[in-house]
Simulated assay, not measured.
Amino acid sequence: MTRALFLLAGLAACAPAQPIKPVPGGEIGVLQQGFYVCELPGDATGPAGIRQDAQDFSVHNGSRYSTSEGRGTYLLTGDFVVMTSGPKKGQQFRQLSNNFLRELNANGKETDLRCVRRVQNNR
């Protein structure tokens, strides 16, 4: 019995301090469900954002999203989101917070387009 405890203690000491990431991009996750409103920045003389209705989408359970043009799926790894099927297939985002996404261009650089999940205080 004592020998088994020493073995278990030795194995525990070798265990990594942080969880092992399942994929190179980080842990696989899901976006907060809800309606994401997309906009470009405005300026000081007008509204803070210029709505881009054609870019809006809703996130559903099971890594699914929908737009007015149809449904698709996405993959979230770490803070990187890629639309893997559907009308937004290939579009990429960086998740800046639980409710805020910034579109990425083909080179992985942030664009001006931002998508914010609609919640009670931003309707």
Score class of each variant (00 low, 15 high):
S97N: 15
R118E: 15
V116H: 10
N105Q: 13
R114N: 14
T84C: 00
L31W: 11
V59A: 03
R94K: 09
Q95S: 12
P19H: 06
G70M: 07
A15M: 11
L96W: 07
L7D: 08
D56K: 07
K89L: 04
A44Y: 10
R71I: 04
P24S: 06
R114A: 10
A44C: 07
G42C: 11
F100E: 11
I28Y: 02
G78L: 08
E69S: 11
F100V: 07
R114K: 13
V59K: 02
Q33A: 06
G72S: 03
V119S: 14
G78V: 07
L31C: 09
L7F: 03
R94A: 11
G72V: 01
E110N: 10
G10D: 04
F35Y: 13
F80E: 06
K109T: 11
L76F: 04
T77R: 12
Q120G: 05
D43F: 04
V23Y: 11
A12P: 03
S68G: 00
Q33V: 07
L31M: 14
K89I: 05
G10F: 02
G62A: 11
F93V: 03
L8D: 09
S85F: 01
G72D: 09
C14I: 06
L104Q: 11
G34P: 10
P19G: 08
G62S: 12
S58K: 03
R64E: 12
A9I: 10
F80C: 00
I50P: 00
G78C: 10
Q91M: 15
Y36Q: 04
R117F: 05
Q55R: 10
K109F: 11
G10I: 01
G34L: 05
L40M: 13
Q33G: 13
Q55T: 00
E27F: 14
G29Y: 03
T45N: 15
G34R: 07
Y65V: 12
R71V: 11
M83L: 15
Q95R: 15
R102H: 03
M1D: 14
S63F: 02
T111E: 11
G78Y: 05
Y36E: 01
K88L: 15
L7V: 04
T77A: 12
G10Q: 03
G26E: 09
A4T: 05
R3E: 13
T2K: 08
L76A: 04
Q95D: 05
N105D: 15
K21F: 11
F80P: 00
V30W: 02
S66K: 06
Q55V: 01
T67D: 01
D56N: 14
D53A: 07
D79E: 12
L5F: 08
E110W: 06
I50C: 02
R118N: 14
N107C: 00
Q55M: 10
Q33H: 03
Q18M: 10
A17M: 09
F57A: 05
Q120V: 14
C115G: 10
R114C: 10
